[in-house]
Write a protein that binds this DNA or RNA. Structure first.
Lengths: 225, 225
DNA sequence: TTATATTTGTGTGTATATTACACATATGAG
DNA sequence: CTCATATGTGTAATATACACACAAATATAA
């Protein structure tokens, strides 16, 4: 027991969304093992920080990013997952708004990049497994928790939400029925603002009302698409 | 990084079911801290074993039990959760069939006991939090995965399943509608066997067909109550 | 300025699923 | 053989999900 020599790390799969594609944030490894290969950002947990603090610190150190939504994903503990020594990794998954996504997508730092999830490079360690796990969770979770809003701007036209769901679910959604359903949940505030995207009729902007959602949830009313 | 001194443990919340009550397996701690208090079984992960192996080993060592269903629950990493030193614990939740449950319920070893979940003793560490987490997961999960069968005998009358759901959901379910719904999922085999429980009409026995469920799941057909 | 292309916004009828509900049947016990 | 107890079953009413098309507001090009 006293001979336990297991190191503990955290890894974060961070998703961003723009114009019909989901991307994930990766870093290029500077050192062995897997030097030069892409990996999910992460690192070792420090003695006195919580796991969430470790994730946020590592993300800031390695990518400069600050996360809008973070949740624990799964803990990967296969004894052979790191070729050097025993490392157990607690994986998180995170979401960022387009404002964050855009900034970092623009700066093409060679060592930090967004990759579209259907055009991923080879990954280090068991990171492909972790990433697939995260994608599965994201796709599933948007159907029973209103986390999709974390991938949109604070104020968004309804079509953005619809496109996000079309993308994540991988199938078309009926515009009228989708709108009816979401609006019936009573978790969106319709704003007195319009946005015009090139040609076409300007769209009304909406805003997710987190407080109202929490309130409804407490009453046992569930989000479901 | 080399100064990391975090120990890694696993803990298991094991549930059993009998006659309208859900119970959980606890052990009485032999040593400080929390000596004499009840706790969820668990212990430190050994160098070369997987997390699941660690859980199974600890359960066997501490309680003698073998588990029928095991899944990772959540990783608890609050720096202060253990008063001695930093210990991160990966919690699992497990289910056992009544055959296992009955045996161990009978032997009233002073240091290992089943407790009804609405009559729990004070627990050590953050184990009450872990336990509540597990209960929440169990209650939620039986509505979208057919794991309830792991709490019943291999062959069971329909009323057992109905009572289990009534218990876990904490509300009555309509017998006819429930039966219709479950049978429509086509994951139960009706056997040519009857069981007679004291008085009343003997009940037909059913058996969960895991293969058929896996097959349906692969086709995207989901279990849902 | 007018016509055209583009995107948003909206309602109704149909099919499907969920819910409520009561009585006959098979057995054991007295 | 009567009574108590648990099982087994169907139908009608209601609610939910789904399919589907055209008018309104703007930008652009003629």
């Amino acid at each position: 027991m006293s001979g336990q020599n297991i190191r503990l790390s955290v890894d974060a799969v961070v998703f961003g969304y723009d114009a019909g594609t989901i991307s994930v944030l990766l870093i290029k490894r500077k050192y062995e093992p897997f030097k030069g290969k892409w990996a999910i950002p992460g690192g070792f947990v420090l003695q006195d920080e919580s796991l969430e603090e470790a994730v946020e610190r590592e993300l800031k150190e390695e990518t400069g990013i600050e996360i809008d939504y973070l949740e624990q994903l799964y803990t990967f503990g296969n004894p052979k997952r790191d070729p050097r020594s025993r490392v157990v990794s607690i994986a998180y998954f995170g979401l960022v708004h387009p404002s964050t996504f855009d900034i970092f997508a623009a700066t093409d730092a060679e060592e930090v990049q967004w990759f579209k999830i259907d055009d991923l490079p080879q990954l280090s360690f068991d990171h492909d497994k972790i990433l697939q796990f995260a994608i599965t969770r994201l796709r599933a979770k948007i159907t029973y928790e209103p986390i999709g809003f974390e991938l949109l701007d604070e104020k968004f036209p309804f079509s953005d939400l619809e496109n996000l769901y079309t993308t994540l679910l991988g199938r078309p959604v009926d515009r009228r029925n989708f709108r009816k359903k979401i609006l019936s949940l009573d978790i969106l505030d319709e704003l007195d603002e319009k946005i015009s995207k090139g040609s076409g009729r300007p769209a009304n902007l909406f805003k997710f009302n987190q407080k109202r959602y929490n309130h409804l949830k407490k009453k046992g009313i569930v989000f479901e698409i």
